[in-house]
Computed example of a mutant assay.
Amino acid sequence: MEKNARIYVAGHRGLVGGAIARCLREHGFANLITRTSAELDLRNQAAVEAFFAAEKPEYIFLAAAKVGGIHANETYPADFIRDNLQIQTNVIDSAWRYRAKKLLFLGSSCIYPKFAPQPIREDALLTGPLEPTNESYALAKIAGIRMGQAYRRQYGFDAISAMPTNLYGPGDNFHPENSHVIPALIRRFHEARLSGTPVVTIWGTGSPRREFLYVDDMADACLFLMRAYSGHEHVNVGCNEDLSILELARTIARITGFGGQICTDPSKPDGTPRKLMDNGKLTAMGWRPRISLEEGLAATYEWFCAHARELRR
């Protein structure tokens, strides 16, 4: 990728897209093309095609998506499958039609079967039933992977896919109901400390194990893959370490200064029992994460505190 290449970051205001845009600028890529969702609705096929016809980006990081935690996925399954299918179909097709050089599609670790062997290898895809709570989102992401592979096979379009583990970091969604586990816990423990609430209850048993990757590491991996990889198969991006949700909660409680009691609520869903990615393919290419969970959580909490007032609006 030349430093003056026309690069479109779809979803630049989101957690991952924002980190990708930062990473690109830090590496000297200044010719970035961005649009807010108000300026360009990626669900609108005609609008997306008109955008590509006018801008003709050479490289595309497709980080735009409708995302959310267990509650959001269970409550809005139709929105998750419809919106994500529309976004990725429109962008991938227009990128090919208007002769983009390369596209990187961002998926999710939820594409894998609920009971996939751990750590999860790329070839576990479609080998068993999905986790029901986020099936709609997972099916859309699987379709995106397969669409990129089909366009590569039929048209020779250089589309690649990266499957990140659970991501977190500055710019995350801290909504009290629709956020993922780390931002949700950061907000709850922070507010409990401020209000003097003695007990915080977390969803589920606390036993499921999850792997977490700081979003700036993910952005670095995306740039690495865009420069170094042009294969047919998707690539896992993780850190090869996991911990239980209860262990995570205790760590966040300590970082936020919450000194009260942490309880679990087994009546709420746990989701997949364990989800640890096999990062061997990417590691063999020469990439490794740099930021530890402790460092990443502290940086994320610092960002949250700096933006807490506007996040409450």
Rank of each mutant, 00 (worst) to 15 (best):
A219K: 10
G206R: 04
N173L: 12
F80G: 12
I252R: 11
L297A: 07
S108H: 03
F212G: 03
L62S: 12
A150G: 02
W203T: 09
P289M: 09
R97P: 00
Q149T: 09
H180Y: 05
K275A: 12
I202R: 03
M218F: 15
A54V: 03
M226R: 10
E58D: 11
D172H: 05
L139V: 08
A228V: 04
Y76I: 04
Q118N: 10
P208I: 08
S108Y: 02
N236P: 07
R288S: 12
D93E: 14
A47D: 10
G260Y: 08
G11W: 01
T283M: 05
Q86C: 08
P132F: 02
K275C: 06
M285V: 02
I252N: 10
L85S: 11
Y301D: 00
S161V: 06
P198T: 12
I182H: 01
V91D: 06
F157S: 08
I252D: 05
E26A: 15
I60D: 07
P119T: 09
E241W: 01
R254H: 13
Y8T: 00
A54K: 15
I70G: 07
G148V: 05
A184V: 03
I142L: 01
I70W: 10
K101H: 05
F258V: 05
F224D: 07
Y112C: 03
L106R: 01
N84W: 07
S267K: 11
I111W: 01
L276M: 13
I255T: 13
A116I: 10
I70V: 15
L103D: 06
P164R: 12
T256C: 11
N90T: 04
F80Q: 14
R152P: 04
E135I: 04
P208T: 08
A162P: 13
R288V: 11
R82P: 01
A138Y: 10
C239I: 10
A138P: 04
T127H: 02
K66N: 12
T272L: 00
A284D: 15
R309D: 12
G17W: 01
R290G: 01
R35S: 09
L126P: 00
R152K: 15
R82G: 00
A228W: 03
C222G: 02
W287Y: 07
E55W: 10
I160L: 04
L246Y: 08
S109F: 09
A38W: 07
P119F: 09
N240M: 06
